[in-house]
Design a protein around this nucleic acid. Sequence first.
DNA 1: TGGCAATACTG
DNA 2: CAGTAT
DNA 3: GCCA
Length: 502
Amino acid sequence: MFSENLHFFEKLSIFLIETKIPHEKIKFLKNTISLKGGFIVTNPSTADVILTILKSPARISRYIGSETRKPIVSIEWVDKCVSKGARIEFVDYLIRGIEEDAMDWTTVEEEEEDQDLFDEDSNSSSSRSPIYTSENEHSDDGRDVDLDPRFLNTSYECLRPTPLKPKFNAKLVELLEVIERAREVNDQWRNALSYRRAIAVLKSYPRDIISHKEIKKIRGIGSKIGYQIESYLRTGTITEAEHILQDKRFHTLELFASIFGVGFKTALSWYRKGYRTIEDCKNHPNLTKAQQLGLQLFDDLREKTLPQNSPFSKRRMSREDVEEIYNIIKENVKKLDPGCVLQPVGGYRRGKELNGDLDLIISHPDEERVPSLLNDVITTLTEGGYIKNLLYRARSESRTGIIDHLEKCFVAFLQPSTQIKRQVDFIIATQSQFASALVGWTGSRQYERSLRRYAKREKKMVFASHGLFTNTKPRILIPTSTEREIFDILGVPWLEPEMRNC
DNA sequence: TGGCAATACTG
DNA sequence: CAGTAT
DNA sequence: GCCA
């Protein structure tokens, strides 16, 4: 008899911030929503409405990134709808501080893009938990398995070796990386970071994961990612990742963010303006200088964010490409001043086959020579017809006039054999900075993060690529002359660059 | 419940 | 200060 | 998203 009310959430996609909501209540909400025709999505950008119990906008924003266009509503609204038996206005339940932006949602239809089912329906993976309480459904993934004793169960990636090409868990890693990138382009960097840490774990784990009981013991894998892995073990894939890969919006955002000078915020804002191609971006009214360069050189550089197998990235450098460029630079620099010391770092030093750029430290035993070094190098290579553009330059005299950092310059370098402009990052270091520059510029990104976090948390030190310091009022420089010495002082194990690929 | 790497340039 | 780069 |  109230059949007209049965589906009062018809086609409404809802993102639920589960934090602080009691478990039972979550179950109730999810049940109610799907019962009434609505569905849960696991990404705020695809939701019509965001439900939460939280009150502070700051707290909320960490769950939804910069997604401010969607109405954020207290869960009491659902209760009210249920008691009225109808979908009521949520004006009275909007969370303060976001109404401004949220109001323009009343016009959802008009403003919303094509079918961005980013992960609509990933409710299939996160909201159905009651269905399989699993225990004995599958013979091989429910076993209680101890962690492999060779694996160091720490949250610091820098304490354990991570090879470039792990022998195990490759497919799983690949899928989780998709989700990581999706979180990133959606401006949820904390979530992306969690995925990155979980991925690092799997890359260093010395065998295939076979049991979900096993994974829950690992630091860095919690309930959400644990659930994703569990579902992977059952089905051989992760639905959310599959959906993301089908999603045009995701690919467009990644494409935009791969432009030098364009980050995730800009990529999102351009997408919202309706841009869909690189040509659209070129017509943007006020491009920054970096973006102009990034667009102008797009076909050469690309590489910023895109994974190796992206259809847009065909231009990574083989090791031979890198060596060709390195040799040219070395020759020219030695001619300029035979005392110079050159050291390629970055992915190349870690053994990567395909590199997006070349990172190169240049040093000189004579401190006096160092300040003028970068200019001379750039000038020589520009006159030689190699350096075509300057992408970024950190001057030695900063605003404060203090030179506590490394002088550096990123350029577009014309590779003779291919006539492709490659990004080369020059880093200048004095001899006393050389060791930390080496550690700091070899990476990986995640390795650097963990090393610095470890230095701060466990050793009360600050590590930066220009030096190791005490974490005291005025920082005191701890002199270091070799990589090994830095590792020793920090108390982290020596890892070959090839084992820093987390 | 705070914190997640650290640092510099641009606009 | 927000955004981007490493 | 996860941990201390």
